[in-house]
Design a protein around this nucleic acid. Structure first.
Lengths: 119, 119
DNA sequence: ATATCAGTTGAATGATTGTTCAACTGTTCA
DNA sequence: TGAACAGTTGAACAATCATTCAACTGATAT
């Protein structure tokens, strides 16, 4: 009863058994999308440096702007991105917003990646 | 003798000590760039599904095209990307190119990320 | 009150990127 | 020899994205 599913590919299956095994372990679309979004957050030099800095010190927007040599606006936009991705959190004290990592899990992820880069 | 370095930011340092400590642990530009490039490779649903499939089975371009419901061309472009990033390798047998992960390290990285997504 | 400063925001801009399309290479098989 | 097929490639296109700019909010200090 298993009907041939519709497919936009431009070729036939060559190794049907292997494809079926791979299909069996493939996560669903939602999880793949979430995972891609997680890596997107780390896939930019500015965001990476922000996360690295925050893994060391709690910092405000101006501190980060000075540290990275960028405008407050640019930093603020990226912090918004990281906030929506639940990677950083902040607490407001008067005029100043102190940012820090959302949890230690975040630090683990990019330190693991760094090990791989160093070979 | 430490002169104020030139800076494109639009504000003064607020917490100088914290900024200096963060600066001390910041990796150099080359390493940050390499790390960002590594995450970029994982920051796309198609590439993620290709890597996931290859972590399970050695597959050819057509297999992947059928599995993901995409054209051979689209798959081939992404495989080229992953090849240049040293994340996949392939061996040619006649007409067919069998792709597999470059090393188990790669599998570790995105399985670690997946744990975080699942919370 | 008013000026100053930290921070945010939306629109605009230029750069990057994923997919498509068409043309191509090289191997297999009749 | 030539048709068929696996795979690659470059150009083109649309979509996404990082930064800039200008305008804004809200808290502090004189």
């Amino acid at each position: 009863m298993k009907e041939k599913e519709q497919c936009d590919c431009d070729c036939d299956v060559i190794h049907e058994d292997k494809v079926e095994r791979a299909r069996a372990v493939m996560p669903d679309a939602k999880d793949i999308c979430d995972l891609a979004d997680l890596y997107k957050a780390f896939a930019d030099g500015t965001r990476l440096r922000i996360l690295w800095a925050l893994s060391c010190e709690e910092l405000c927007v101006c501190d980060l702007a000075v540290l990275l040599g960028m405008t407050k606006s640019a930093i603020s936009h990226q912090l918004r991105y990281l906030r929506l991705a639940n990677l950083v959190k902040f607490k407001k004290q008067g005029k100043i917003a102190f940012y820090s990592l959302a949890d230690d899990h975040v630090k683990d992820i990019f330190e693991r990646g760094f090990e791989h880069v160093r070979e």
